[in-house]
């Protein structure tokens, strides 16, 4: 005889990631390490912003460490390491984001005794990372003017997850004929009261303001 049985369950498949993220956060807090997850579009300047922030942190006597996330390769890792900053590379392979589990392993590989700030560069993507918090103190989303003025309203959900919204490459706004006010207005529509910081990482503009918004200084 066969019979049909229904098992009732309320299981959220994204919950496991959130639980791991909370564990990551507890671990970093216990070691007195402040942390930021830098999400953003491909080529928006995340790595250069991290380089700038790291060097300014060093100048101020802090000890930054960086986790660089990419689908493949170690280009970003080499750049950050060349500055004498402890760095751990994460290749996600088939996945389009770092999740809390990958972050946990990268944190294990980092010498936590030698850092007091952890910057995580997520995979360039304005969609998937939104579903996967890593357990950092702050999350920021970076876009740049070269992607056009419609990036925020095309990807509203990830900006809701952002404590800080960064608009980079402001020096190119004129050439690209992009109105920064449109981007700022969209940021305020999807995330009212958000902190929007305009930067020009190439020339070091707006970096300290960004660090302050991220609670790093």
């Amino acid at each position: 005889m066969h019979q049909l049985v229904t098992i009732d369950m309320e299981k959220d498949l994204l919950e496991a990631n959130r639980r791991l993220a909370n564990e990551n956060h507890r671990l970093l807090k216990a070691r007195g390490i402040r942390s930021v997850d830098l999400m953003g579009s491909i080529g928006s300047g995340k790595t250069l912003l991290i380089e700038r922030i790291s060097m300014l942190l060093k100048d101020r006597g802090h000890r930054p460490g960086v986790i660089t996330g990419d689908v493949a390769g170690d280009d970003d890792h080499k750049r950050v390491s060349a500055l004498g900053i402890p760095a751990v590379n994460v290749n996600t392979g088939k996945e389009c984001h770092i999740d809390a589990h990958l972050a946990e392993h990268a944190i294990e590989d980092m010498d936590l005794g030698s850092i007091d700030v952890l910057l995580i560069e997520n995979v360039g993507n304005l969609v998937c990372p939104a579903d996967f918090p890593l357990g950092t103190d702050k999350r920021a989303v970076v876009i740049s003017v070269t992607e056009g003025d419609d990036m925020i309203r095309k990807h509203p959900v990830i900006f809701r997850e952002a404590d800080v919204i960064v608009i980079n490459k402001s020096d190119l706004a004129g050439v690209m004929e992009v109105d920064l006010d449109v981007l700022k207005r969209d940021a305020n529509t999807v995330r009212p009261n958000s902190r929007v910081i305009v930067t020009d990482a190439k020339h070091g503009v707006g970096i300290e303001e960004l660090m302050e918004a991220l609670g790093l200084i």
């Binding site: 098992i7 369950m9 309320e10 969209d186």
Partner: peptide
């Protein structure tokens, strides 16, 4: 565009539903 602000007072909001991927039940043959 989804607006992540209170429609009544414009204040900051938390999302309480709509972000999960939830299994509600499983039916099996015994």
């Amino acid at each position: 565009l989804p607006v992540f602000a209170c429609p009544e007072c414009g204040g900051e909001v938390d999302i309480t539903r709509g972000k999960g991927v939830t299994i509600s039940n499983v039916r099996l043959m015994i």
